[in-house]
Amino acid sequence: MTFSIKRSIAILQKDYKDVSKNLFVGSSVFMPLIMAALYGRMGVETINEQYLVFNMTFCLVAAFVQCSLIAEEKEKNTLRGLMLSPASTLEILTGKSLLSFIGTILVIAFAAILVEYKPENILVISVAIALSAVFYIGLGTVLGLVTKSVMEASVVILPFMGIFSFGSYLTVLADKYPVLKAAEYMPNAQLIHLANDVQMGASLLDVWFQLAVILAWIAVIYVIVVVVYRKRMTD
């Protein structure tokens, strides 16, 4: 079956209508912007603090909105119909991810303006942010598939929000607790390392390792997505 953009766009339009009617989910989009505005007023300039806003955006928009969209489909018993529709797995997952991806990129762009973030190489940063968004959308997809309602999704996302928003700060304790060195390889920590290197003049080739780690996280999370999705199809 060939990939149909029209089917994915139709799913995107449906998701947009669903989110516009759900104030609880829609309001999560504005929380990173409020935080960015406060940081901007405080004159925050360090990369680590600026990327705290961006990583929170990934959790609240890419992961939570995606998780809520899928959980709502399950709550309304419409996900089964979507799975049994003529749309392929790729078309469904693409369509279900488009709104979260577009929303994430837009919120990060506005947040960057509010915190006055000016990367030295916007191309490298754009690639890294786009890849990070893809990972968090995959995370949200998995969580949405294993939850039964939007309310449950809002609870399940909390520990992941803590890990992927503030987990990079665990690295400061790595000397005392060596096991915490593993936190350096989390996607949020790698994104911060990449951003710091870019501010010091690093090019795309110079940050290949950080991008490779993020890509590895993407590969793992989407293998899990496919496994869980197919299991839901056969349940």
Rank of each mutant, 00 (worst) to 15 (best):
T171G: 03
L106S: 12
T94F: 01
V61K: 04
E72C: 10
F58G: 13
A62K: 07
A133C: 13
E75G: 10
P178N: 12
A202I: 06
E73H: 10
A128V: 13
L106M: 14
M161K: 11
S4T: 09
V155K: 13
L33W: 12
P86T: 06
K76Y: 00
M161Q: 13
D175C: 00
P119H: 02
M1Y: 00
M56K: 03
P159C: 00
M31Q: 06
I192Q: 14
V115L: 06
V223W: 05
L194W: 04
A133K: 11
I214T: 03
I11T: 13
R7I: 04
L191G: 15
I92P: 00
I70Y: 04
A183I: 05
F58Q: 12
A183G: 11
K74V: 05
R7H: 05
L158F: 01
V25D: 08
M83W: 00
W208M: 12
M35V: 10
A112F: 01
V213K: 02
M161C: 15
E184M: 10
G140S: 14
Y136M: 15
K181N: 12
L215N: 06
K17W: 02
G162P: 05
I108S: 02
A189F: 02
L173R: 02
Y185E: 09
Q66E: 13
L84C: 06
E116Q: 15
E75F: 05
K6C: 08
W217A: 15
I214V: 13
I108E: 04
K176E: 08
K17T: 03
E45A: 10
L114I: 03
F209A: 12
R41N: 07
S88T: 04
I105N: 13
E72N: 14
S68L: 05
L123I: 15
A87S: 13
I108G: 03
S203I: 10
I47N: 08
S149M: 08
K118N: 15
L211C: 07
S8F: 00
V198E: 08
Q50S: 13
V155T: 15
Y136T: 14
T57D: 10
K231D: 15
A183M: 14
I163R: 01
L180S: 06
S126M: 04
S8N: 10
F24C: 06
S20Q: 03
A202P: 12
M233D: 15
L79D: 06
V223K: 14
N22I: 06
S4Q: 06
E45N: 08
S168W: 01
A36Q: 00
V65P: 03
S8A: 14
L114N: 02
I192F: 09
L114A: 08
I157T: 15
S149G: 13
T141N: 10
F3T: 00
